[in-house]
């Protein structure tokens, strides 16, 4: 067993006539429009490689048409990838037979959909129990389990209702419950909250963070909302025209955008909320006899440093556990903020 629970290696999805011929040929490097012009093919996902560790939240961020939804569907082969490997627990999904693939879909991975994907002809509890029903669980057990999960998402009393009687936010809680009921190791989220109002979206994001703490699932989360990505992701991948432009922690992406495209994206992000002391500090390993205002953990965000440097002329000592890693002073904080405005 590998240390990664999900691992995509050189995954491609090309639509069009004879898509296999594109991969490995010089055409593969062409921009989308030229590729379409020349070959009649569209590369929705091009050469994507990434690994996700158990318990990690991996967010794929991109605008519509960037291929992110296609990519997440390649993981369980809802869309058949044209090339590449998708390892789940070290097993290459792409080469699996129908039976074994179904097994993985039934037990290991479950998905939350953008427009909820509830089945209108089933009660809420039957919607949640759908996956269990497909597994072949008998009625009593699956209803009991579904009712339990509904409780955890705060919809305990809605089991007998039908989807169209629920608000959008509640419907997506049902979608979440349906995925949780499977007790999967991996959860895939395909822009689950993009159809919701901002306030409800924030609630749902908090819900995911709470669940993540409680149940410790591995999550692959697709979104077109950068703030959502920064909020939820342990790591973020920025996707453009089917390829990853950058992979990194939220802080790395904000502090060191890989190119213009990413820089453009993060322009409006309030950096003070994302950048941590570590990103702006002047590295130093030992005290030089200076006095410090106080010690701060290295992952304190700039926003929280502000009051400290405003109230005191003394620098702050940045600590990683017991070890000193650097110094932050008023100038460093101010510079970070100025960059923010530029």
């Amino acid at each position: 067993m590998s240390e990664f629970i999900v691992s995509c290696q050189g995954v491609w999805k090309v639509y069009g006539p004879k898509p296999e011929r594109i991969i490995g040929s010089p055409d593969a490097k062409l921009p989308r429009a030229e590729l379409l012009e020349k070959t009649g093919c569209v590369a929705a996902v091009r050469d994507i490689t990434f690994d996700v560790a158990p318990g990690e939240v991996f967010v794929v961020m991109g605008l519509s048409g960037s291929g992110k939804s296609t990519l997440v569907r390649c993981i369980t082969r809802l869309i058949e990838p044209t090339a590449g490997k998708v390892l789940i627990d070290g097993e290459d999904v792409v080469t699996l037979g129908e039976e074994r693939l179904r097994d993985i879909r039934r037990h290991k991975v479950s998905m939350v959909f953008q427009h909820f994907g509830l089945l209108p002809h089933r009660r809420i509890v039957d919607n949640v129990a759908f996956g269990l029903e497909v597994q072949g669980l008998d009625k009593e057990e699956r209803i009991a389990r579904a009712a339990g999960v509904l409780q955890t998402v705060g919809l305990g009393s809605w089991g007998d209702a039908y989807p169209d009687e629920l608000s959008g936010g509640m419907q997506q809680r049902v979608g979440l419950a349906r995925a949780l009921a499977m007790e999967p190791e991996i959860m895939l989220f395909d822009e689950p909250f993009s159809a919701l109002d901002p306030l409800i979206r924030r609630d749902m994001q908090d819900e995911v963070i709470r669940l993540q703490k409680e149940v410790e699932k591995t999550m692959i989360f697709i979104t077109n909302d950068l703030l959502e990505a920064l909020k939820l992701g342990d790591r973020i991948a920025i996707m453009k025209d089917g390829a990853f432009v950058q992979i990194g922690t939220p802080e790395e992406v904000v502090a060191h955008p890989a190119d213009e495209y990413v820089a453009d994206f993060i322009r409006d992000v309030p950096r003070a909320h994302v950048l941590t002391a570590r990103a702006i500090m002047e590295p130093a390993s030992a005290g030089d006899g200076r006095t410090y205002e106080r010690d701060i953990p290295h992952d304190t965000v700039v926003q929280d440093l502000l009051p400290l440097v405003v109230n005191s002329d003394l620098p702050l000592r940045v600590m990683d556990g017991d070890r000193m890693v650097g110094i932050v002073d008023r100038t460093a904080v101010m510079e970070a903020l100025i960059e923010d405005r530029a």
Binding site: R102, R105, S110, G117, L119, P120, H121, F130
Partner: peptide, 27 residues
């Protein structure tokens, strides 16, 4: 199509998709 995708993603067989999703919704 989302309903079919949901059925597939939870591991429905073709027959399960027909009897649990397509036929009831087409009724």
């Amino acid at each position: 199509p989302t309903a079919l995708e949901v059925a597939g993603s939870f591991g429905s067989t073709r027959r399960q998709t027909l009897t649990k999703v397509q036929l009831p919704m087409a009724k």
